[in-house]
Computed example of a mutant assay.
Amino acid sequence: MPPRASRPPLHEQTPPPDWLPEVIARLRAEYHPDLPLPRPERQVLDALLRTLLSQQNTSTVAARQFAALKAAYPRWEAALLDGPDGIETVLRDAGGGLARIKAGYIHGILAHLHEHLGTLDLAATRQLNDQEARNLLEGLPGIGMKTASLVLLFDLLRPALPVDTNIERVAKRLELFPQRWTAEKVERWFDAVVPREWAQRAAFHVAGVRHGRLTCRPREPRCDRCVLQDLCPSAALLGPSETRGVRSRGERNPVSSEHD
């Protein structure tokens, strides 16, 4: 039998609309008009663990838990020796949910690094290419695509494009791709269709997250004040009564020039 033909990449199966650059430009103009600057370099392991703590936590709680860990364990070797139960106690005392699960992941990451790299340090990721660094990060316990992408983008300054629930919700309401797609497919699609330039991707990520939190909210989205309203087919269904029934995707006048 002839070999089975491989399926084309996601962005070829579902090509981006020609107005996608307009979506990115408007979000950036509204929420992040200035391109970001690299933030001060942090230890990569510290950045990874702090990002792990932020999963299903507020940034305030994650910062408090991380500070408690650093106070309890000035060196990560002490956390490795203390074990998951000791780490869990530190996290619980600092407040926040999923303490047992995250303690297990943290201890698992430290044990994995000690066993496989012989050091509790991820500085070597700075010398790896993008895919090698991603493979190393995603090979650690509890670290999935989004967490790895956040560390790659903001701490290793690589042109990754993490897609959180806010960006995914915005994109699906814009009907950029099938609703059934998983978060992993969504990120792979965005990674293929957005130019691979670090500052542009960092700005788009931040702007997309802010738009999802402030305007394109899970409930009661503020479609009447949305800079994407005329491009969004969902505005006619989800927005306030005064915006429902509005035609989309260029059938209204575009938003004012202040957002161009």
Rank of each mutant, 00 (worst) to 15 (best):
L48R: 05
R7D: 11
S59T: 15
W19K: 04
W189R: 13
Y31L: 07
L113C: 12
T60H: 13
Q65K: 13
T147Q: 08
E251V: 08
R42T: 03
T182L: 11
Q200A: 13
S59P: 01
F190C: 05
P233S: 06
R219M: 00
I143E: 10
C226N: 03
W19E: 07
L53W: 07
N57F: 01
Q65A: 12
R225S: 11
L153Y: 03
L45M: 05
G144T: 07
A5I: 12
L156K: 06
L52C: 08
A160C: 13
L110F: 10
L157T: 13
D46M: 06
G142C: 13
L20D: 09
A111D: 14
A171W: 08
M145I: 08
R188T: 13
S6T: 08
Q179Y: 07
R249V: 13
P36M: 10
N57R: 04
L98V: 09
E197T: 12
L174F: 11
R75P: 00
P74E: 02
L52W: 05
S234D: 10
L122T: 00
E187V: 05
Q65E: 11
L49W: 05
T14S: 06
R158L: 11
D130T: 14
Q56C: 10
I106V: 14
P254V: 04
D85A: 14
D85L: 08
R92P: 03
L110G: 04
E12R: 13
V227H: 07
Q13S: 12
A67K: 09
R173E: 08
R134Y: 09
N253L: 15
R217L: 02
T14H: 15
W181V: 01
R42H: 03
Q43N: 15
A72G: 07
P2C: 02
H114W: 10
S59H: 12
T51V: 14
G142V: 14
I143K: 09
G86S: 09
H211V: 04
R222M: 03
E138I: 14
S6I: 00
D46V: 04
P233W: 03
G108P: 09
E175W: 12
C226R: 01
D93H: 14
N166T: 05
Q200H: 13
R249D: 11
S257V: 06
T147Y: 10
I167R: 07
P17A: 08
D230S: 09
A148K: 03
P240F: 08
E184T: 06
A67E: 14
R219N: 04
N57E: 01
E132K: 14
V151G: 07
D85F: 06
A79R: 02
A63T: 09
L10G: 05
T125S: 07
W189C: 10
A160T: 07
P3I: 01
E197K: 11
V246L: 12
L110R: 05
L157Y: 14
L176P: 11
L161R: 00
R252V: 05
P178C: 04
P233N: 02
S256D: 14
L157G: 10
P2V: 01
V44Q: 01
R225M: 00
R4C: 01
H11T: 01
I109P: 03
A192Y: 09
W19S: 08
S248L: 02
P84T: 11
N166F: 04
P2N: 04
N166C: 09
A62I: 07
R252P: 02
P221M: 00
V193T: 13
A62V: 00
I87H: 02
L153S: 09
P40M: 13
R210D: 02
R26C: 03
T119D: 14
